[in-house]
Design a protein around this nucleic acid. Structure first.
Lengths: 189, 189
DNA sequence: GTCTATAGGAAGATAGAC
DNA sequence: GTCTATCTTCCTATAGAC
């Protein structure tokens, strides 16, 4: 290494992630990514030889790792199901800044890039999340099928509340989602 | 008019809509839009002098009109609340091709285009929809606040089920959403 | 109303200096 | 490791023929 990096990998990926989350893959130009990171285009190519696609892929893999190590890890602790879910709510509130930020997974999903380089990673994040959450619900006494249905529904609600919050210009849908999530997951009905 | 149009406005807007829905605004190049409509780029500029932005805006306005005249109109009929909601489910199933297609409103929402030319239209579509749906619920005996909460939640679930369906590569979330929607809206709890 | 041709600029990507 | 300079391709948009 010739000279010290101006920005370490973690922060670099975080900045890139912010751009992809805000404007999606097609909307993120190298000029935008360069401005956001403080690195010139050529420097970005030094760090990511395969260009924009590699940046997005590594951002997604980092996100997968982060979700696995924070959200899913906490879901596997040995506190009560209710407590574990409350923990997840708190983390989600931070992750999406109270509903003001879009979800990277939604913004990097594009119908035409289906079968593309990102869809498999996105799919694995969702399915891991759903299954881990379902395990919490089976701990709470629900059968496997109900647990999976409710977990899938919760992820669905999360995504939808973020879409709607953005669409109507207020984070109310996200707030309501978070407030109702424990009951939705663990309630009787 | 010098010679007959190769494609009428309605079908033209429909083709354009399909592209925006699949790849979003930034992902839709004039080459793509040209290929999808069968009109060369210059011809698209003849129909939409302000270019891509006008295309997306008119697509959105047409969508707003369509939703208003089909989905919302049916919600205002004088059949039972349950019947009206079943009607909406049927229309949604067709609109999103059983969950295989993304929602234009989501795909044209971009955080950086917030305050942009599309956000006001998107916002009005969502709020009109929520309020009209809420009126069905007040007809069913719910108070205004509950009706609005449930309606907002339903729109949220719709969006989320589409995002998740795309994310995990199966339309199961959308199917489950549709199946549960009448109960979610009109159920006791 | 649609086309071909093209201007002018922004896109992704690379070469080579430091 | 980062930069400036540059290449090539693709983009939006326009001019003018038919």
């Amino acid at each position: 290494m010739a000279r010290p990096a101006l920005i370490d990998d973690a922060e670099l990926l975080d900045k890139l992630s912010g751009v992809f989350r805000d404007v999606g893959y097609a909307g993120a130009s190298l000029a935008t990514l360069s401005e956001a990171t403080g690195l010139k285009r050529a420097s970005l190519y030094y760090r990511f030889p395969d260009g924009k696609e590699q940046m997005a892929r590594e951002v997604l893999l980092t996100t997968k790792k982060w979700i696995s190590e924070t959200i899913l890890e906490k879901l596997r602790e040995d506190s009560s199901p209710h407590e574990r879910i409350k923990q997840m709510c708190k983390t989600l509130d931070e992750l999406y800044s109270g509903g003001k930020q879009a979800c990277l997974l939604n913004m990097l999903s594009s119908a035409r890039i289906q079968q593309g380089p990102f869809s498999k990673i996105i799919q694995s994040i969702f399915t891991d999340w759903i299954e881990t959450l379902a395990d919490v619900l089976t701990d709470a006494g629900f059968n496997k099928k109900t647990a999976l249905m409710r977990s899938e529904r919760a992820l669905s609600q999360l995504q939808g509340s973020l879409v709607l919050s953005r669409g109507i210009g207020t984070n109310k849908p996200f707030r309501n989602f978070l407030a109702q999530l424990p009951e939705d997951l663990l309630g009787k009905a």
